[in-house]
Every structure is written in C-alpha cells, then in structure tokens.
Write a protein that binds this DNA or RNA. Sequence first.
DNA 1: CAGTAATCGAGACGGTACGTCCCGTCTTTAT
DNA 2: ATAAAGACGGGACGTACCGTCTCGATTACTG
Lengths: 206, 206, 206, 206
Amino acid sequence: MNQERKLKVIQSTNKLGRPRDTSRDLVIIETTLRHLTLYGYEALSTTEIAKDAGVSKATIYRRWPSKRFLIIDAFKTLPRLEVPNTGNLEGDLKDLLDQLHFLFTSTYVLPVLQILTGEMSHDEVLQEELLPWLEERYYPGRAIIERAIEKKELPEDIDLETAQSIVVGPLLTMVSYSKTNIDEEVLTNLFNFILKALNYKSEEPE
Amino acid sequence: MNQERKLKVIQSTNKLGRPRDTSRDLVIIETTLRHLTLYGYEALSTTEIAKDAGVSKATIYRRWPSKRFLIIDAFKTLPRLEVPNTGNLEGDLKDLLDQLHFLFTSTYVLPVLQILTGEMSHDEVLQEELLPWLEERYYPGRAIIERAIEKKELPEDIDLETAQSIVVGPLLTMVSYSKTNIDEEVLTNLFNFILKALNYKSEEPE
Amino acid sequence: MNQERKLKVIQSTNKLGRPRDTSRDLVIIETTLRHLTLYGYEALSTTEIAKDAGVSKATIYRRWPSKRFLIIDAFKTLPRLEVPNTGNLEGDLKDLLDQLHFLFTSTYVLPVLQILTGEMSHDEVLQEELLPWLEERYYPGRAIIERAIEKKELPEDIDLETAQSIVVGPLLTMVSYSKTNIDEEVLTNLFNFILKALNYKSEEPE
Amino acid sequence: MNQERKLKVIQSTNKLGRPRDTSRDLVIIETTLRHLTLYGYEALSTTEIAKDAGVSKATIYRRWPSKRFLIIDAFKTLPRLEVPNTGNLEGDLKDLLDQLHFLFTSTYVLPVLQILTGEMSHDEVLQEELLPWLEERYYPGRAIIERAIEKKELPEDIDLETAQSIVVGPLLTMVSYSKTNIDEEVLTNLFNFILKALNYKSEEPE
DNA sequence: CAGTAATCGAGACGGTACGTCCCGTCTTTAT
DNA sequence: ATAAAGACGGGACGTACCGTCTCGATTACTG
C-alpha cells in the first residue's frame, strides 16, 4: 500500500559513481508543496525551489523532467483516503466524511488538487497521469457503497458513478467556494442528505 | 442585472482624446478565453494574445493591469445560470441541472473555472474578487430551494448552504474527475438523488 | 540672411480652415533644445516634449516628419558665426575666436553639435542635410583667410581646407575633451599659434 | 598598460559554478561596434545584438548593466595611439598624424568617438568614465611635445594644453565635417602648419 | 453671419525595444 | 556519477516611446 506512494523520480541507471542522495528527494518535494501552496503553479519557480531547498537545479532536473512532473510527484506524496470498515454504511460514511474534512482543512491536499485540476483542463498528459490516481482516492466512496449494496443496505440498482459523486462532490464544492466554516453540524447535515439520497434504510426500525 | 456583467476594465479618466475602441475589449477577451482553454494559465502569454488578436500589448495593458485581471474579466463574460421558475421544485431542479450540464460541456466555463479555482487557492485578491461573483452563480441553487421551502415543498429546517452544495457539487465533481459521459440518464439519477436528499415529497401523494 | 535661418517646417498647403499657430513652432523648438541638452538624443522623447511644451504630438508631427528633423531644425535656429571685418587678419581672427568661444560656452551650440555629429556618423540623410549648413558656419574661417591672401597678409599657396581646420579645430577639441577652462590666456595662445601656423607676418615690421 | 584596456564587464563574484565564456564577451563587443557604426546609438538594440551575436539577452546583461556601458566597453577595445619615439619632433609628429589618420579612416574609432561625445554632453557619468580615458589617447600628443621641450627643440614657455589641441584638433575636425579626402598632401600641410605654430626650428640649418 | 475645414489638445492605436526573470540545459570543481 | 553553483539560449513580462489615428472643441476664412 505504501508502494503506491513511492516517488516517480527518474531512477539512476548506473551503478557507478557517487550514489544519489535520496534525502534530497524529500526536501525538494516538501519545498515544492510549500511553494505551490503559497504561490501557485505559475509563480512557482524551480530556480526558487532550488535556492530554498539548498539544492542545485541540476539535482531537481536529474529527478524530474520538468516542473509539471515535479508537482505531480509532490501531489502524490500527500495523504490519501483509507477505505473505512466499520461494519455498516452509516459508520463508513461518517468516517469517510471525517477523512475528507481532515484532508481538505489540515493538509496541502486541497490547494494542490485545485491547482492541478486547473492544469489538467488543458493538459492531456496531466489528465492521463492524474485521473486514474484520483480514482484511487474516490475508490473509498465507491467501495463502501458497493459493500452496502452487497449487504442489502442499499438498493441494487443504484448508479455507482453518480452515487460516489454525491459523497465527495458537495464537500469539495463547499470547501472550494463557500466561506462557511465546515463544522460538525454541517458534516452531520451532509451525512443525512447523502444517506437519504442513497435511499438508505436504517437497520434497526425494521 | 446586466450591470454586473460589465467588464472591469480600467476606465479612461476623462472624456478628452480619442476614445477607447470598445470592440477591442471583446476581441481581446475572446482571444484570451480561447488561449486559456487551449494552453492554460501558465502558458497564456499576453504577447501571443496581442499578436493573435491583432492588437498591441499597450492596448491590453491600458485596460487590465496584468494577465490575472484580464483572465478574471474574461471569466466574467461567460454565460451564467438563470434562476428557473417553472412552478415547482421538480421543474426548477431539472432546469438547473440542464443549465449546469450545458455550461460545463458547451462553454468555456469549466476549464476557466477550474483554472481560476486553482489560482484562488493562494491568491486572496482573486478570492475577494471572484467568490462573491461565484455566489451569484450559486444563487439559483439557493433560490429554488428557498422558494420550495416557502411553498412547503421542502421542510423548513433544511440547511441552505449544504443543500445547495448538493445541487451543484456532484455534477461539478463528475465533469472534473470522471471520464463518464454525462447523459440524460446520469442527470436523471442525479435529479432523483437530490430530491430524495432534500426530503422532497411529490405534491400528488401517489 | 535671416532667410537661411527660417525653419524648415512642413508648410500647410491649404488656405482653408484654421491657420497654423506659428507661436507653437518656437515653443516646440525651444523645448526640444532644452531637452536635447538635458537628456541627449536617445532619451529625447516627442511625447515628453509635447507634454512639456503644452502641445499635442499631432502638432509636432504636422510640422516635422520625425524626431530627427525636429532636432535638425532646432539646431538651425541656434546662433551662427558672423564674418568679421575688422580690416586685417589679426582683428578678424581675434573676433572669430571670441565668437567661437561664446558659441561654445554660452549657447546650446556645443552639445547639440556634438549630438548631431554623433548621429551624422551613420546617417547619410543627416549628413546631406547638415554638412553644407555647417560649412556656412565654417565659411567665416575660410572667408577671413581668403581675404588675407588677397591683401597679401598670407602667402598665396596656402591650403584653405587645412587652414580653416586650424582655426576651428583646436578650440572645438579643447571644449569637447578638456576640462581646462578656456580663458583669455588660452585664447591668446591659440591666436598666436594660428597666426604662426599660417605664416602671418605682422604688417608693421616691428 | 594592457591592464587599462581590460573590459569593465561585471565580474562574477566567486569561483563556483560554470565560468563565464569569455569568447562571448568578444562576439558581443564586435557585434556592438558593427551595429553602432551601422545604425548609431539610438537605433542600436540589445535585442538585435543578442540575435545577431547568437547570444541571449541575459548573457549581455550579465556583463553590462545597460546599453550605455556596453558601448563604453566596446569603445575601449578599439586601438589606441602609441607614443612615437623616432628621435626628434619632426619624426614623432609625422608618426602621430599617420596614426590618427589611420584610426580615423580605417577603424571604428571615429564614429564611436563621435557618438560617445554626443552622449557625454549631457551625461556626467559618461564624462567621468571617458574623459580620463581619452586623455590617455591624447597623451602621445603631449608626450612628444614635452620631450621636444626637454630636447630644446621647442621653446620652454609653450602651453601644453593648447599645443596638443593643435596636434589633434584640426585633423579630427576635418574628418568630422569636411568631405575632403585626407591624403598625403593634406597631412603634409597640416604637419607644416603644426610645426610652424609650435615655433619649431629645424635642427640642421642652424 | 452661418457653414466649412484645417487646426488645436488629448490620448488611443500597432509596433517594437527595454531590462528583468524563469525554464530546462550545460559546464565547471569538489566529493 | 552526483553535488552546488551558476552561465547559457530562448522567450514572456509589464513599461515606455514612436509615428499615426481619431475624437470634440476652436478659429479663421468663405459664400
């Protein structure tokens, strides 16, 4: 599972000579994330990152072919959603919303995702590189729904694609475009909305 | 209402001298939108826009202080949501989803919004400039919900902020991160999900 | 004689309409000379001259086809050498050196001449325009020599071209490249040098 | 002595990193001299020089802070007068006039000197930078006169400043403002004029 | 004495150079 | 071979000026 978080740096092909200092990888990535969040994609400069990270530009370009790929790799080091497994849909959904809330408010995920989404809009290479990877992050949404269907907590004929967009979309939109503080109450409202949207019947009353 | 769509170009200070050629404003804006969609924020070059629009750089910088403000203004010329008024929530929601679908698939709105969202993440000026304006676009979502509450089509205690995020969020997320084609069926699924989420009871109690 | 000093402004061909305001010619020329002396050829800007002279750029370009010709015309308004006629070469030469000294230290002539000399070096149009006119200024040097030859004050076989360069050249070079103050003594030294160079024999064989 | 001819390029501050390619200095200087002579100060464009020299603008601006200083440096690479030492004033003066003639007709010296003289007229920085350096070129004139005084070839009380202006001034003025071809005869005339002006007595006839 | 037309100041226009900065590559010495 | 340092060609930035143009207002002559 950690496997997937490995950096996609260009690997050295040669075994001769001085070996790469892998600690540099991390410093560069961290500096990149910081700059990206502070200045955005355009104002981000490899020259500046190199200075700030105490690294030469060659050291950066030896690992990544361009600014774009450095940023992609930086993004991929960010924390990801974990598939919840609480036993029922209610618990799983609550857990997922909490995870999303955490990612969007306490990590670099939101700004970097937004910046890369902007870049993806006109960059097919970036799309091909990132979309499958983003699906991984979505997967938890889909996974808990599939499990709920198996358990008959949800009707069989539910459309997975739409269903998972209902789980992630509203929260992402709120953190992106609303100044409203996302507190426990909002999360609870959202939780209820989603359950109702999915036609979830609480197990007990039956 | 059209007032708000007026370009925020730097206005000439007095009435002396040769007046600005307003037709240039439009050519520049259109060229900008085209380039923005094709090349993105970073690769967008005022030098190129000037050449392509058959205009001098001075003519651009006379109107907008920098690339960033040119893009903001370009965004503001894009079509907006209109408040539906079909008589009931079902009709309004259907209309709204159709409008959103159209905006996201047949206009420049989606890429430009994504690019600007990325820029907003680290640029407070841009946020202050754009967020209130985006709220305008959201407003239709809120408006139809408020109207439905008045008409008792929806329960009174519904949270507006969350509710409107349910209307726009899933679709925006789908068009941004899913390769799924958004067809009539998907829209219908979404429509049903939203109505259920909002606890909407069809008027004719079947 | 004043004929030659007339400005070469483009004349209005039409007798209809509002007549040119000739007072503008002078204001522009004077502002040009001031700016030329203060800022030089390159930094001289018609935009700035227009502002400073309280005139529009069109008013300038209606009279002169370009910056270059404006400057030429400005130069031509500067005072010129007058042919001395004191009765003998000694008096004439003294008078001429005094005139040159005055032109070089109390008027705009020196800086403007230097600037235009620099421009002439690579601009044939300017050469053709200015060289004959400069010869006019030289002419006094040649004139007094020719007169002295006629009067047998100077040998017949003297080379006019070289002779006049001896009259003007040293002083021009000194004011251009030496920080030495040109006082009465220097002028007297120069005066004596020149007379000796020309093989002048004082009439009253002392 | 060669020390003084070294370019005043902005020196790299330390010995780390890729060293400056000094061959670029030369290409840039040569291109500058060519353009200066062809197009003059104003029309000279660093952008064009860069293109023509196959060099980037950064490479130019890394070495010189502006066009002006590039030109100054270019001027300083031009050949200079050498102090003649033939044994007597006659030989030295002949040699000097020949050198001047060569410099003014077969090198870039004249146009560049004229252009810089024009710029100096309103630019104190340039004056302070160039005048002492020009004095070096004059020095040969002064040097041969001083030597002649020591040798009693010339009277003791001669004014050096004026005397050297007689050596250089007439020729400079002729090449600047006269279309006359400067041939052997003109040089001989000038030579004789100068010797007479300085009161030189040929050694032998005595 | 109203109509006409060139003039005026102001400033917009296309074009182009300025000097700065960044990209991604290359070249040096040291490890 | 890798490291830091920084030079390299290329090219965009935002500013400023050139010489042209277009606007409303002014100012003489014409009819």
